[in-house]
Design a protein around this nucleic acid. Sequence first.
RNA 1: GGAGGAGUGGCUGAGCGGUUGAAAGCGGCGGUCUUGAAAACCGUUAGACUCUUUACGGGUCUCAGGGGUUCGAAUCCUCUCUCCUCCGCCA
Length: 425
Amino acid sequence: MLELKFIRENPDTVKKAIKDRGMKLDIEELLSIDTKRRELLTEVEALKHKKNALSQKIGQKIAKKEDVSREKSEIKIISQNINEIEPEVEEIDQKLATLLLLIPNIPHKSVPIGPEKDSNKVVKEFGKAPKFKFEPRNHIELADILDIIDFKRASKIAGSFFILYKGLGARLERALINFMLDLHTKKHGYKEVFPPFLVNRKSMTGTGQLPKLEEDMYRLKDDDLFLIPTAEVPVTNMHRDEVIPEEKLPVYYTAYTACFRREAGSYGKDTKGLNRVHQFDKVELVKFVKPETSFDELESLLQNAEKVLQLLELPYRVSALSTQGISFAASKCYDIELWAAGSKMHLEVSSCSNFGDFQARRANIRYRDKETQKLLYVHTLNGSGVATARLLIALIENYQTKDGTVMIPKALQPYMDGLKEIKPA
RNA sequence: GGAGGAGUGGCUGAGCGGUUGAAAGCGGCGGUCUUGAAAACCGUUAGACUCUUUACGGGUCUCAGGGGUUCGAAUCCUCUCUCCUCCGCCA
């Protein structure tokens, strides 16, 4: 969330951010509520001050065994006044807090302005789309030929848009996860964590999914718990309401989790096969850093995610998302999209974002600055490193041969017991 | 699920109705000493909000969270949450 004082002092910056994001929010209303709040606060605090002083006086008088009836009746009147204003302040506080939680982060100045399709900027391309002397199959056909995914039974067990990996398919999924975790822990300096897949409301609010996106998530009503849509939520909230010692920064975590998304309202769009599912696997990267380093940290985070695809020798492109493409909490974001040769489309497998202090404010994650001795908010970042299901799609589609055999990239073979290919069943 | 115990500042830990926003210790910061460092000693060290004549200034709130009693609550009552111990159940 943004600091109220910042909005008060920079209303035009905030308004521009909202406009660039294609959102509609009434900042003037917020500001007038803020003014009203401060007026009332001044009034009620002066009354409280009077009351406190009198109360202390009563204490002193009682000690001296003097009469205090006059003070008591005076306090009674003041208390009545307080009781009239106080509820109004509380109501306004509530309103303000609600409004504040709905205001998005300010996009960084380097973020292209405009609606998503036209304005996302491709900043990098890696590898070449494979050329085939035959018509490449899509992953649904391949999965069938290889007998590695059972769509029918998945929907019997859970419903449509769930996946059941089988045999070498399950093995491949596990290999990818292990390969990515090993890369990030051994080569990129991330600490591995394995967090809960269910989180409470406070955690969901801390990273910014709530209150806006409640209908997009699976929720356990009896316990008010949510299935995580990404490991970003539990991992970022590890340090909620904490002060991280400055010398520990930056802190890097990587985590494998399953991710759960209702995808409400998105039916009918790219819905075939593995592309859009309710449960998928992801290795996530999360960073807590000092403010002045966060945009450099975003670049290295992106490189860490890219490395996965480079080692697997898969063609991809990186886009800098526009003001309308970046998420609510992000100030800057890159997407990595893999080319899937059979589906003939790009698949988003990673989003790498810098949130600045937006999440840190919500979740109250701070560090003490050595120089000034002040408590400051850290900056948080995260990125997928990367999401599978889609990774697996691209892998089998790009590495297919004419008879449907899929070659295993070199980097992955150790994780498949040296297996070099998956043959048709 | 049942029965007990506990939640205090960056940390450990006192306080159990009246200058207690909170002793003490550790840690942090500054200094003395030292060629330098360590040790020792001295000083200093919570946060959020807010006001004004923006000042080494004033005020309000905060001792898990909400509500209550009282002129006055970290301290009493009540509900909620979290943690610990024991029992039950269980992968």
